[in-house]
Design a protein around this nucleic acid. Structure first.
Length: 573
RNA sequence: GCGCCCAUAGCUCAGCCGGAUAGAGCAUCGGAUUUCUAAUCCGACGGUCGGAGGUUCGAGUCCUCCUGGGCGCGCCA
């Protein structure tokens, strides 16, 4: 199904061709209702290129622009904009068409790609904390959107399950472990033994030496240390799974760092052989002397003591994703501090001849009310589990105040959807690069650009259909419903519904789910205005059927849109 | 020292490819409910878009410099 934007762009291109003009400019949604529904700056762009008068060019263009089947006559305005206004019956017809379309008008990508999305990536033997929210929630939303757009998505959790910290963990396990505590709360106990070992090591060189030996033994494949390592990984994975269940996040594969261990030496040998890497001060390094910003920043892929590091692992990871998974594109949803590291990794991939499209998708930090990195009162990372529990509890409290008649099972379900949805939406509704201040009050507010506000719009619609079903079974509008757009609120709502298909693909231009979030907020806003102005069930035909259809479509778009963000909607709240 | 990111209303944030008079929410003030969830809606108030130059018909958006904040920069991940 062609969007209005695509339709008008096509007609504009035809007009330009008929006028012997080169393609230029673009058709965009109007910046102000006074300018109609869509506008194009084509005449302005061409005027610059050709050195002609923009308004005269605009005139020449609209003489050949045939939009009589969908729009009022095009208007020239301002410096030479061409404004286009859709006719209500055009919008009504599109709305009726959307009602029959499972995809709500969203076209699949013309060139589907195989995309590996690397997001989340928690560390073993450490609790997931507030810092994991952005990567996890953003990566999941991008995966859902890319998948809906017809791409083949492989969600990969690149778990931090290998590294020098295991020297500490294994030493602590052997010397400090409290078994009953481990059974009660595995992660807490792992953290405790890690911390205590760290303190001992700081004070005592013998402990430092012992820790190092444990690490060497693990890396050499010592059976006891390996089984301790394996157990910590298994315990951690169980903990991660719990969080992912609460967050409704699902991975296709979970290739931790350890997965690449037996590929590392081959990676280094290959890079040495191809002269991409060289030996410097005893370490194997890759220099980027021809890339100014990396000229003095070599990547070390084998330490002078012979050990491998995370750069080695990431080079192997690139290999695996391209060679084994056959990815066209790799999206790395990893925080901004690793920009330099990934520039190096991607530069190495280029030298190895990989042509895949690598995107490092970075994001800002979550701050506390004090505008510093969000921490607990004692200065520690806020455990994700505690944060999600609190979200659900707070949502529950609000629901009990506002709607005490709900059953217990309904309250549990709603608190879950509202609380978790609020956390996710608060994150996704903001531009990913900005640091944001975490605020329960704001994210759980029923006013403004929040999950509860959007969920409430959906709930109100469902309530209408429940009420309608008392008189006669009706759980949704019939697919052959006709739209009649009389009131301005009806036309405005219908117009917005038609824009869903235009908005969804733009999210991937620059990986900005907040564009979709903003759209959904405006949609809910338009719906509420409609809801205030236009009674549904009490209205006469044909308005009643038309309004029911608008409600149905709005509910579907809200449901689908929130689903693309990874957010669930309750039927009541 | 070098590099990356950020700076928009009192507060929290939008503003994708440069477009017309820079928008929301909160807060403040004023309205709307015998109602399908008022958990909402309508209106008012509120801005030298950190500063200075530049490119352009047109700059919050692009370029240069400066200020302030965050992060990173050879053997942690």
């Amino acid at each position: 199904m062609e969007t209005f934007q695509a339709l008008l762009a096509r007609k504009l291109a035809e007009a330009l061709s008929a006028a012997d003009l080169p393609p230029a400019g673009s058709v965009t949604p109007a910046t102000d209702p006074r300018f109609g529904d869509y506008q194009t700056n084509t005449a302005l762009v061409l005027a610059k290129q050709l050195g002609e008068n923009p308004r005269a060019l605009a005139q020449k263009i609209i003489e050949r622009l045939d939009v009589s089947d969908c729009c009022d006559p095009p208007q020239i305005a301002g410096a030479g904009f061409i404004n286009l206004t859709l006719r209500p019956e055009t919008i009504a017809a599109k709305g009726a068409e959307l009602l029959r379309d499972e995809r709500l008008g969203v076209e699949k990508a013309t060139e589907p790609k195989r995309i590996v999305i690397d997001f989340g990536s928690p560390n073993v033997a450490k609790p997931m904390h507030v810092g994991h929210i952005r990567s996890t929630v953003l990566g999941d939303a991008l995966a859902r959107i890319a998948s809906f757009l017809g791409h083949e998505v492989i969600r990969d959790n690149h778990i931090g399950d290998w590294g020098t910290q295991f020297g500490m963990v294994i030493y602590g396990w052997k010397n400090l472990l409290d078994r009953p505590a481990l059974e009660r709360d595995p992660i807490a106990e792992l953290v405790r033994i890690y911390k205590e070992t760290n303190e001992k090591a700081a004070a005592d060189s013998k402990v430092r030496e012992a820790v190092r030996e444990e690490l060497v033994k693990l890396q050499a494949g010592d059976p006891e240390n390996f089984s301790i390592w394996k157990e910590t990984v298994d315990l951690s994975m169980k903990e991660f799974e719990r969080a992912y269940q609460v967050l409704d996040i699902h991975y296709d594969i979970q290739r931790g760092e350890s997965f690449y261990n037996d590929r590392l030496s081959a990676v280094v040998e290959r890079l040495l052989k191809s002269k991409i890497a060289e030996i410097s001060e005893g370490a194997v390094c890759v220099f980027f002397r021809d890339i100014p910003e990396l000229a003095e920043k070599p990547a070390i892929i084998r330490k002078s003591d012979g050990g491998f590091n995370y750069a080695t692992t990431d080079v192997a990871t690139v290999d695996y994703r391209i060679q084994d998974l056959k990815a066209d594109t790799v999206w790395l949803v990893v925080g901004a501090p690793q920009i330099l590291h990934f520039k190096q990794i991607i530069a190495i991939a280029r030298r190895e001849g990989y042509t895949a499209d690598f995107r490092h998708i970075t994001f800002g930090s979550i701050l506390g009310e004090d505008r510093k990195l969000m921490k607990t009162r004692s200065g520690e990372n806020v455990p994700l589990r505690d944060l999600l529990d609190e979200a659900v509890q707070r949502a529950r409290k609000i629901i009990e105040e506002k709607n005490p008649d709900l059953s217990e099972s309904e309250k549990i379900d709603i608190a879950q959807k509202v609380g978790i949805g609020a956390v996710k939406y608060y994150d996704l509704s903001q531009y990913r690069m900005t640091d944001y201040i975490f605020s329960w009050e704001r994210m759980l507010s029923f006013q403004g650009n929040t999950a509860p506000y959007l969920q409430n719009a959906y709930v109100r619609i469902r309530s209408i259909f429940r009420k309608a079903a008392v008189a006669a079974p009706l759980w949704g509008a019939p697919e052959d419903a006709k739209l009649v757009l009389a009131a301005p609120e009806e036309e405005n709502l219908a117009t917005r519904l038609c824009q869903f298909a235009e908005v969804v693909p733009t999210v991937l231009n620059d990986f900005r789910p907040n564009i979709l979030a903003n759209y959904l907020f405006e949609l809910a806003n338009s719906f509420h205005a409609f809801y205030e102005a236009c009674p549904v069930l009490k209205s006469e035909e044909p308005a009643r059927s038309s309004r029911l259809a608008l409600c149905e479509l709005t509910a579907r778009v809200l449901h689908r849109g929130l689903d693309l963000l990874g957010i669930a909607v309750p039927e009541k709240m």
